[in-house]
């Protein structure tokens, strides 16, 4: 883990994250976490769907980031995804950055 400060890692997700793609998302996020960035910014602008499986992955990553002293931030969340987050009450869990 890097000791340097204020490293932002920006990553854009795209497409439909249903249960079948959850493990793929998991690997992507794991790689991002492995970079040791202070802040990981996930751009969900091009995400069309987030399943509960995908949400779980996001939550896990969020928790791991918190545990490691960094932060996972969601940004550019489409309305459709936002609705899901709100429905699950997770809009209060994730750090959400408005653009």
């Amino acid at each position: 883990m890097t000791t340097s400060q204020d490293i932002n890692h920006y990553h854009a997700l795209e497409g439909r994250y249903d249960a079948l793609r959850a493990s793929e998302l998991d690997q992507q996020l794991q790689q991002l976490l492995d970079t040791g960035a202070d802040t990981i910014v996930l751009d969900l602008g091009d995400v069309t769907y987030v399943s509960s499986s995908a949400l779980r992955v996001l939550l896990l990553a969020h928790r791991q980031a918190s545990d490691e002293g960094s932060e996972l931030v969601l940004t550019n969340i489409p309305q459709r995804v936002m609705r899901v987050l709100r429905m699950a009450g997770l809009d209060r869990v994730f750090g959400i950055r408005t653009v």
């Binding site: 939550l59 699950a88 009450g89 997770l90 209060r92 869990v93």
Partner: peptide, 11 residues
């Protein structure tokens, strides 16, 4: 209300 199993207070 927030999903269960994530936060201590699901509000």
């Amino acid at each position: 209300g927030i999903v269960l199993g994530i936060v201590p207070d699901p509000a």
